[in-house]
Simulated assay, not measured.
Amino acid sequence: MGRTAAILIARLIFAGVFAMAATFKFAGMADTAAYIAAAGFPVSLLLAWLAAIFEVTLVLAFLSGAFFSEAALLAAAYVIFLALSFHGPSRWQANQAEFGFFVDHFTFFAGLLYAAVHGPGDVLAIRRGLVGRVAETRV
């Protein structure tokens, strides 16, 4: 019972973090695009929309359990990309809080990797996915 509750809470936390991120992007797409452009990326408005849609897709995967391991791996790569692109070493001298943001991304990364390996659990999970099928057939 405790294991099931922990897994469901973790899935809700993952979904909640990405849902908040997507909500902020949709609520202020121009601001998100400006932030992306300030980091040096071209076509920032397109990237902002793609990021928001990607985050919604992650939310659906974390809530449903469908393609959970794949979503967790993609989310882990996305989180490391965000850490390096928006909170990396080039930003630490101007604002030391950026170092904290950078490190926080790595703890989230670790949790996503752990989730990718262990899957969505057995309760309230649509058991579909490429990685999940491989893990389920292992004895």
Rank of each mutant, 00 (worst) to 15 (best):
M1L: 14
G2I: 15
R3P: 02
A5V: 09
L8Q: 10
I9A: 08
I9T: 07
F14Q: 00
F14E: 01
F14L: 15
A15S: 10
G16T: 12
G16D: 07
V17F: 07
V17T: 13
A21F: 07
A22C: 02
T23I: 10
K25V: 12
G28L: 08
M29E: 03
M29S: 05
D31Q: 15
D31T: 12
T32R: 00
Y35P: 08
Y35V: 09
Y35L: 07
A38I: 06
A39D: 10
G40E: 05
G40W: 07
F41H: 15
S44I: 03
S44P: 14
L45A: 13
L46S: 07
L46Q: 10
W49D: 01
A51V: 05
A52D: 10
I53W: 12
F54C: 06
F54L: 07
F54M: 12
F54R: 03
T57I: 14
T57R: 06
V59F: 00
V59G: 03
L60Y: 11
A61R: 10
F67S: 00
F68I: 11
S69Y: 03
E70G: 12
E70I: 05
A72M: 13
A72Y: 03
L73N: 02
L74Q: 00
A75M: 10
A76R: 01
V79W: 00
F81A: 10
F81W: 08
F81C: 01
A83Q: 11
S85K: 00
H87Y: 04
H87A: 00
G88D: 08
P89W: 14
S90Y: 12
R91F: 14
W92S: 13
W92G: 10
N95K: 14
Q96F: 01
E98K: 08
E98W: 07
F99Y: 07
G100R: 01
G100H: 06
F101T: 09
D104K: 15
H105M: 01
H105C: 11
F106L: 14
T107P: 09
T107R: 09
F108H: 09
F108D: 02
F109L: 05
A110G: 04
G111R: 04
L112W: 02
Y114G: 10
Y114F: 15
Y114P: 01
A116P: 05
V117S: 07
G119R: 08
G119Y: 04
P120F: 00
G121Y: 11
D122L: 14
V123S: 06
A125Y: 04
I126G: 00
R128Y: 12
G129R: 08
L130M: 13
V131K: 03
V131G: 02
V134C: 13
R138W: 10
V139P: 15
